[in-house]
Design a protein around this nucleic acid. Structure first.
Ligand SMILES: [Zn+2]
Ligand SMILES: [Zn+2]
Ligand SMILES: [Zn+2]
Ligand SMILES: [Zn+2]
Lengths: 137, 137
DNA sequence: CTTGACCTTGAACTCAACTCTAAGGTTTAT
DNA sequence: ATAAACCTTAGAGTTGAGTTCAAGGTCAAG
């Protein structure tokens, strides 16, 4: 049985994060010590590892809640549900990437054209582009 | 002189957004009508266009505040300042894209391997990958 | 002279994922 | 026996960009 600080160090998260996840229903401590300390067993540690890995591939805590619900009772859930969550997250991620790539392209065009010199910004091409009706954005 | 709703429609934002930007110091109404209504002139409209364009290339409201400070007194600011803001935002954007691309790659590997069928998730490769110490994340 | 569309304010609420604070109890080592 | 290093709680604060609410004032048309 591990105390919260031990789990926190193992998984490189804060104790606050662990308590927060508990409030969010993601990970309950296995038992409490007589003094009220949270005590985690190996399966709790494994569950926390699952959470951390799911975060590392881009799932939100809300997604992870759903994944855990399935994982805890795999037999009554299907591959289809899991894949659907994954594809949904993939689509979201790709959309966000597309948006950011547009930003990236606009910003690099703006940056390329500006001389970046120490003289006054009176004729700065970046400001001009943002002012003009036909900006390159 | 235009009322807030007119500006909002022109620029496809809500009146709440305009009031919010005012609180944030981004755009003051030019004057108030006797009844207290915000009245905007063409230069205010132009300034709002600038803000909208800057948002459209990925600048945050905080960035835009700095850009406006420079734009309003170009003569006492340099190209270098503007370019620096732009490059900083570009770097941030690229970092975020890198992070999301990692998510994207992990998620597509996970999704590819899962059959997505209606049978039970007992052997779902996605769950297995997130459980195992050597997940493909 | 009333209806409906528009405008005002301040304050609270939203989302996500924590982080921090205060005030206190417990354990361990010296 | 006391200090350091843990742990507990409820609740508030953070960030960013708004949105929503309640309660009311104003303006043009019919
Ligand atoms: Zn220049
Ligand atoms: Zn420039
Ligand atoms: Zn399957
Ligand atoms: Zn599967």
């Amino acid at each position: 049985m591990y105390k919260i600080g031990h789990i926190a160090k193992q998984l490189n998260v804060s104790t606050d994060t662990l308590r927060y996840y508990e409030r969010q229903g993601l990970l309950q401590a296995s038992v409490r010590s007589p003094a009220g300390y949270r005590l985690y067993d190996d399966s709790a540690l494994e569950q926390m590892r699952f959470i951390v890995r799911a975060k590392a591939v881009g799932f939100s805590l809300k997604d992870i809640q759903e994944l855990l619900t399935i994982k805890i009772d795999k037999h009554n859930h299907s591959c289809e549900e899991v894949k659907s969550l994954t594809l949904q997250k993939l689509t979201q991620t790709r959309q966000r990437i597309e948006e950011l790539l547009k930003f990236e392209r606009s910003l690099s065009v703006l940056a390329e054209r500006c001389c970046g010199g120490e003289e006054s910004a009176d004729d700065c091409s970046i400001l001009t582009a943002l002012e003009d009706v036909d900006g390159s954005a």
